[in-house]
Nucleic acid binder design. Structure first.
Length: 685
DNA sequence: CCTTTTTGTCATGCG
DNA sequence: GGCGCATGACAAAAA
């Protein structure tokens, strides 16, 4: 049995832990961990399972400080399922007996400690209900694997009022008498990892039964809902925005677990704490808080482990400090208020809802991975993380320039599909950085995307934006994967086929949907250049850039301090805008020309028809004239007589008009011979 | 799903 | 040589 060293005696311990938790993806506000750290798993588990198994997996320990997600109520999750002490069966307080048996003093430091100790040692459901215990009572009654929420319903009326246990049989005096300093010796780091792994593996096998039962319970509760209800719920989720759908999924899971929310608000807790007498401090063992992990693991593995050493090894304070503030302390206020739950949801809810992230089961869930599997997994994860980090570095280099990461990523997608940057990768790596970033990553500079339009410089990042972006995006895929793997294998034993509808696939779909929705809602009406300009924070509208005279444009470029990327983009916008207008004009002109040609064609065709009609009229007139001439000719010959008074044959004579107007009757022979002679003369000439 | 039309963009040439 | 413009060609989006 190990006890947490009273870290208040080690000034750096808490800081180390906080940093580690941040590195591991946990969210633990400093003002809360003063009260919470006693509930944390032992150091070996912290390191081996939080870090070796990959950061995101440790989110099983997530203690959400956000009221909306349960606030202090999340501390309940620290109670491993199936391993809760049974106050009913152990009215005298097994915890206290263990404490006594070990002879290790434990001095609760805070009122929470006192209350916890008091409640647990009191051994009744009421007292143990608060932060830790309701699950214990219910799980003991309803079998293994019940969560606190399960128990809350199983044992309704457990008010969780710590005052109910105020008169518990207190052996705290003995505990308080023991010197706190001796606890540090218990946590000496023995370093016998192999032995520890063996024990952990055995413990996991023992926990398999409990996990299986828990899964069955979940299935039963899920089946209790009518299909119609399920469909309605699912349709509601589908209709809602992704983040709302995630919440719905979360709440649905809670309902499926017959959850009755017993989470404490911070105010409730403080009131409860204030109601606790200071002198009711009693001992509490972490083994009761984490019976599945601490008892076994500590007893067998590292009885001499120094806790502060264990949690601080391989952790660079500088790196950690550079990392964690972005996630925890430099958050954008608006983002924090608008999306208070999102970080937690993003990092955890894709795999399971916060109520399911009980540390106990996850602790046990990690167990088979401790050892070679864990190391392989962690190596794979680290490898993936490194790859993602490089991608993220490129994005970050632009984000460091003050550009919104989401927008920049979209810009990259639009600018060059060959840029090698995808939103998926950025999302992954962003969250990865959140958990594993190092200072050098932030110093990466503008590498890559050199084919974009120039180098980057000038703007300075708003870290909150960067972090906000990281939180906005989904949690790291690697981490989710690892987390899911562990969880499914060791906690819920979910069938692989059932994972399709699990939050991971949902998160991946939701990721693209989220991006599309983001584009659809905000930027759909914007052109690509407008989105680019918006992403790069160019202080001019595209219309201005395109329309202003070249002198004004050049003056504007020289007057304003713009980065090369911005200038290049503006020139491109102007060029494309001009060309766009020119192309439109060109097409208009082309269309006008075609229309004009068509009009000309119609006109010409009309003229042609008119000419045809005229020609026909003229031909008709000519024919009439010929007929009249023929009639006149015969009329004249009918009246002519020769010297003998005989009629003149029109076949032998012709009428010939002379130049002086006289008409002569000439024999045809003379006319034909005369024409031949004239023709000969004309040819000879 | 295929075809056609529209639109944006690039490359090129000209003034 | 830089700039604006015109235009063919191409690809993607839209109808």
């Amino acid at each position: 049995m190990k006890y947490l060293k009273p870290w208040w005696s080690d000034g750096g311990g808490l800081l180390h832990l906080t940093i580690l938790l941040s590195l591991a993806g946990l969210r633990l506000d400093l003002d809360l961990d003063l009260d919470l750290y006693l509930l944390l798993p032992p150091p070996t588990l912290l390191w081996d399972e939080l870090l070796l198994a990959g950061g995101p997996t440790s989110s099983a320990y997530a203690l959400s400080p956000f009221p909306a997600s349960g606030g202090w109520g999340r501390a309940e999750q620290l109670h491993p399922k199936g391993r809760e002490p049974d106050p009913a069966a152990d009215p005298e307080g097994r915890l206290l007996r263990e404490v006594r048996a070990l002879g290790v003093p434990f001095i609760p430091r805070t009122r929470v400690d006192a209350w916890l100790v008091h409640s647990v040692v009191a051994g009744d459901a009421d007292g143990a209900h608060g932060l830790l215990g309701a699950a214990a009572a219910a799980s003991s009654a309803g079998g293994v694997g019940a969560s606190l929420e399960d128990s809350s319903q199983a044992a309704p009326g457990d008010g969780g009022d710590p005052r109910a246990a105020a008169s518990s049989p207190s052996a705290a005096g003995e505990e308080e008498k023991a010197p706190a300093e001796s606890t540090a010796q218990v946590l000496d780091a023995g370093g016998r990892a192999n032995q520890e792994n063996e024990v952990l593996r055995e413990r996991h096998e023992a926990m398999g039964h409990n996990s299986q039962n828990e899964e069955n319970e979940q299935r039963v509760s899920a089946q209790e809902k009518s299909p119609q209800q399920k469909n309605e719920d699912e349709s509601k989720i589908a209709d809602k925005p992704d983040w709302e759908a995630e919440k719905t999924t979360q709440s649905r899971n809670e309902r499926s677990l017959n959850v009755t929310e017993t989470a404490f608000s911070l105010d409730d807790l403080s009131q409860m704490l204030l109601s606790q007498p200071e002198n009711s401090l009693e001992g509490i063992s972490l083994g009761d808080i984490f019976p599945g992990s601490i008892n076994d693991g500590m007893n067998s593995s590292t009885p001499n482990m120094n806790f502060s050493q264990a949690i601080s090894h391989d952790v660079n304070l500088h790196d950690a400090m550079l990392l964690c503030p972005d996630n925890t302390f430099r958050r954008e206020p608006t983002a924090r208020t608008s999306q208070p739950e999102e970080p937690f949801l993003q990092s955890n809810s894709h795999i399971t809802n916060p109520e399911q992230t009980l540390p106990g089961p996850h602790l046990t869930g990690f167990l088979p991975l401790v050892g070679n599997q864990t190391r392989n997994l962690s190596q794979d994860l680290l490898h993936d993380l490194d790859i993602s980090i490089f991608d993220e570095t490129n994005l970050m280099s632009l984000a460091m320039e003050g550009f919104d990461s989401m927008e920049v990523s979209q810009l990259f997608e639009e600018l060059d599909s060959d840029s090698g940057l995808s939103l998926n990768s950025s999302n992954n790596s962003t969250s990865v950085i959140k958990y594993n970033s190092s200072y050098s990553m932030c110093e990466g500079g503008a590498t890559g995307y050199s084919d974009l339009e120039g180098a980057v410089g000038g703007y300075y990042p708003d870290p909150s934006k960067l972090c906000h972006m990281g939180r906005r995006n989904d949690s790291g895929f690697h981490g989710d994967l690892a987390f899911q793997h562990i969880q499914h294998n060791h906690t819920y034993h979910v069938e692989p086929g059932a994972l399709d509808s699990t939050p991971r696939s949902f998160s991946q779909h939701g990721k693209s949907q989220k991006i599309n929705k983001h584009l659809n809602d905000t930027d759909r009406n914007l052109s690509r250049d407008e989105r680019r300009a918006k992403a790069l924070h160019i202080p001019f509208s595209v219309d201005e850039i395109v329309r202003m005279p070249v002198e004004s444009f050049n003056n504007m470029l020289s007057r304003h301090y713009l980065t090369d990327l911005q200038v290049s983009l503006m020139r491109g916008i102007r060029r494309r805008g001009k060309n766009k207008v020119a192309a439109q004009n060109c097409r208009k002109r082309k269309l006008d020309i075609i229309l004009n040609l068509e009009d000309d064609l119609c006109n010409l065709q009309a003229k042609k028809e008119i000419l045809k009609r005229e020609r026909a009229q003229y031909n008709k007139a000519i024919t009439t004239m010929k007929q009249k001439l023929h009639h006149l000719y015969h009329s004249i010959f009918s009246r002519l007589r020769d010297d003998d008074g005989r009629p003149v044959n029109p076949n032998q004579y012709v009428l010939e008009c002379s130049q002086d107007g006289s008409v002569l009757i000439v024999p045809k022979e003379l006319v034909t011979s005369g024409h031949k002679k004239e023709n000969r003369k004309g040819k000879t000439k």
